[in-house]
Design a protein around this nucleic acid. Structure first.
Lengths: 251, 251
DNA sequence: TTCTATATCTCGCCT
DNA sequence: AGGCGAGGTATAGAA
C-alpha cells in the first residue's frame, strides 16, 4: 500500500499535498488546529482547536474532536472538495447539492498530514437484527407458540407494514411486531395501530410483540390493549463464508 | 501540541507505542491491514483489509473503511482497551459493560501509527432545529398567523407531547406539530394522533403542521384529515459569542 | 440508571 | 430522485 506522510507542513506545502491526494482520490488524514463553519441543513460554527480531519475516497468528509464517537462536523459521501490558500492559510471546502450544503475548514496549523490508497474489498458480515428474527420465526414458528403458522412478511396495511402475519392453532389471525432490542412504549403503539387496522374489518385477531425484553410501561400498555408479549432473542450466528463485493472484481 | 508518528512499525514496536499512547490517554490513529470481530448487541466479522483505526481520549473506538461516513465498526466513549501481542500479531480489544460488548482488531501490518494530545476547548454552536423553531414561534407568534397566541410547549397528551399548543384569534385550540425538515406522511400521522386525543374531548381544535416544506402525499393526507400546513423555515442564525466548556476551566 | 425524543442522523431498499 | 424503515444507531436531557 502507498502512503505519504508529512509532519508540520507549511501552507504551500500542504496545499500541494492536498491537491495531489484529492486528484488521486486517496484517503486523507490531517491533524490540524482549525476553525470550522457549516451551512446547509443547519448552520454551525466551531472556533479554533485541534481536530482530526478525514477525507475518504468516496467523498466523505469528517472532522473529529478528541471526544465523542460522532464527528463534530461532516459531509456524507459524494461531496466535492476545493482546497485553496488565502492569507497564508489553507481552506478546505466540501460542498454537495441535494441538499445544498457546505463545510469549510480554515487550517491554522497542521501537525500531521497523510494520504494513502488502500485495498479493502471486504463487506461486513453482521447478525442480530429484526431481519434475522423474522427468518428465525419462519424457520421455527413454534418459537412463537405451538401451532403457529406464519403466512406473510412485510404485509402492507394502512398504517405501514406488519413484520409477520400468521395464524394460531385455532385459526385466529396473529399480528407480530418484532423488535431486536428491549421494547418500549413506541413498539406497543406501533403494534396497536396495525391491530386497529384489522379490528376495523371485525376479524378475530391477536397482537404479539416479540422482543428480547420489554420495559414496564410498555408491558402495562400492552395488557391494557389486550395484546401479548413473547420473549425472543435475535439470533447472532453469522454465516462464515466470506463475501466479496463487486468492487473486488472491478479492480 | 505533542505528536508522535511512526511508519511501518513492527509488532513489538507497535505494542510499545500503543501502551505509551493509551497510558497518556492520547488521540491514536492507525492505518493498518486488519481483521475485525465484534460481539455484543449484535455479532459481526470483517476479513482482512486496509482500514483507519481511531482511539480517542474519552475511550471512543472507531474503525473506518475507505467508503461511507459511518465507521464499519465502533465502540462508544468510555470503552476500556487492551493491546496484546500474540504469534507476532498485535490485537487491540475495546470492551464495555452496559451493554456488554467488545471489539477486537487483529493487526497484520501497520503503515502509519500516530498519537497526540491536543487542545480543544470549543463547543459547537449550532442552529436550525425544532427547538429553534419553537422559540421563534413564542417570540413571534404572528409567523403562524395573525392573532395566534401560543400557550404551552411540550404539552403532554395520551399519545406523546404536543410541540406547541395555542389559541387562534377566534379562541379555537390550535395544535402545532413542528418539523425542522421537509415534512412527510409520518409527521401528518403524528399530528393526527394528537388531534384525535383532543377530538375525544369534543372541543374545537385545529391541527397545523409547521415545516419548511411538505411532500405531496403528506399534504393530501393532511387535507383529508382537515388539518393545515404552514410553511416556516427554522431560524439558522447563530449566537456569535464564543462558548467555553467547563472542561476548559478544569485544566 | 433507564427511558424518550431528536438528528446536518446515515444507510439501504424500494418505488 | 424521493420516501420509508432500521440501526450494534449516538447523544442530550429528564425521570
Amino acid at each position: 500500500m502507498k502512503i505519504k506522510v508529512k509532519q508540520n507542513p507549511e501552507a504551500p506545502e500542504l496545499i500541494h499535498f492536498l491537491e495531489e491526494a484529492l486528484s488521486k482520490r486517496a484517503f486523507i488524514i490531517l491533524v490540524s488546529c482549525c476553525r470550522i463553519e457549516y451551512r446547509g441543513r443547519a448552520t454551525s460554527k466551531l472556533g479554533l482547536g485541534d481536530r482530526t480531519i478525514v477525507i475518504k475516497s468516496d467523498g466523505s468528509f469528517l472532522v473529529h474532536q478528541d471526544r465523542n464517537l460522532e464527528p463534530v462536523n461532516w459531509q456524507p459521501p459524494n461531496c466535492k472538495f476545493k482546497a485553496i490558500i488565502n492569507n497564508g492559510k489553507v481552506y478546505i471546502t466540501g460542498f454537495r447539492r441535494n441538499p445544498h450544503e457546505s463545510l469549510e475548514v480554515e487550517i491554522n496549523k497542521t501537525y500531521l498530514a497523510s494520504y494513502h490508497v488502500g485495498t479493502d474489498s471486504k463487506t461486513l458480515q453482521l447478525a442480530g437484527y429484526e431481519e434475522d428474527m423474522r427468518e428465525l420465526i419462519f424457520r421455527e414458528p413454534h418459537l412463537i407458540e405451538k401451532g403457529f403458522r406464519p403466512t406473510s412478511r412485510e404485509y402492507a396495511v394502512t398504517n405501514g407494514f406488519i413484520d409477520v402475519l400468521g395464524k394460531d392453532r385455532n385459526g385466529n389471525l396473529v399480528i407480530i411486531e418484532l423488535k431486536s432490542r428491549r421494547a418500549g412504549i413506541n413498539a406497543v403503539k406501533q403494534l396497536k395501530r396495525y391491530f386497529d387496522d384489522f379490528m376495523d374489518d371485525k376479524k378475530f385477531v391477536r397482537g404479539i410483540l416479540v422482543a428480547p425484553s420489554i420495559n414496564e410501561d410498555a408491558l402495562a400498555l400492552l395488557e391494557k390493549y389486550q395484546m401479548e408479549f413473547k420473549e425472543l432473542e435475535p439470533p447472532k450466528e453469522i454465516n462464515h463464508e466470506e463475501i466479496l463485493t463487486l468492487d473486488f472484481f472491478k479492480k
